[in-house]
């Protein structure tokens, strides 16, 4: 962006659109397990995700931009997670929050999907069991960065 003569700014429409998009990433209200409680903590006063424009959790996948897979994905829940992802409108992003969602974590057994990336494409993985809210905030930051740069890809969040 540059300041033009007089009182106006010049910018590419793409940049403005991406800036607006990255400042209003609405997550899906989808709590699965322990990580969901830390996901709620992110919206609470101490961490306050509203600063990043992501406080509007939407219960309907049709209105959400970001899916935070917060917790272990059981085999019984897996088809529903996939379905919710399919119901979200493009463009959409996915954060795999915690060890269980990313790789199955300590539950290497018959009941848990060994990584939600076998079901939906994941943009950012957050390590931790559960990750601290700072970790999730950083992951949202990385998603915003991806949106501003207009690209996607596997980036590992490290808080």
């Amino acid at each position: 962006m540059e300041v033009g003569p007089g009182h106006f700014l010049l910018a590419k429409l793409d940049d403005v659109a991406r800036w607006a998009q990255s400042s209003s990433v609405w997550p899906l209200t989808m709590g699965l397990a322990c990580c969901a409680i830390e996901m709620m903590s992110v919206t609470a006063p101490e961490y306050d995700v509203a600063r990043l424009g992501s406080e509007v959790f939407r219960a309907s996948p049709r209105q959400a931009d970001l899916m935070i897979v917060s917790g272990r994905v059981a085999q019984k829940m897996a088809p529903i997670v996939k379905r919710l992802y399919d119901q979200m409108a493009d463009p959409k992003w996915v954060i795999s929050m915690g060890a269980c969602a990313s790789s199955g974590g300590i539950f290497d057994n018959y009941a848990i999907v060994q990584g939600v990336d076998t079901i939906v494409p994941v943009d950012v993985y957050v390590p931790g069991c559960p990750p601290t809210p700072d970790g999730l905030l950083y992951a949202i930051n990385l998603i915003q960065q991806q949106i501003r740069e207009g690209g996607r890809g596997g980036i590992f969040a490290r808080a």
Binding site: A33, G71, R72, A74, M77, I106, F107, N109, Y110, A111
Partner: peptide, 27 residues
């Protein structure tokens, strides 16, 4: 929808290790 197999997993861990999965029941 959140069946994790915690009780079964605990059988394959040492007595102290089992506590790790047990804490994740009532989180």
């Amino acid at each position: 929808y959140l069946h994790t197999g915690i009780e079964k997993t605990a059988e394959n861990l040492f007595w102290t290790q089992a506590q790790t999965v047990i804490e994740r029941m009532d989180y």
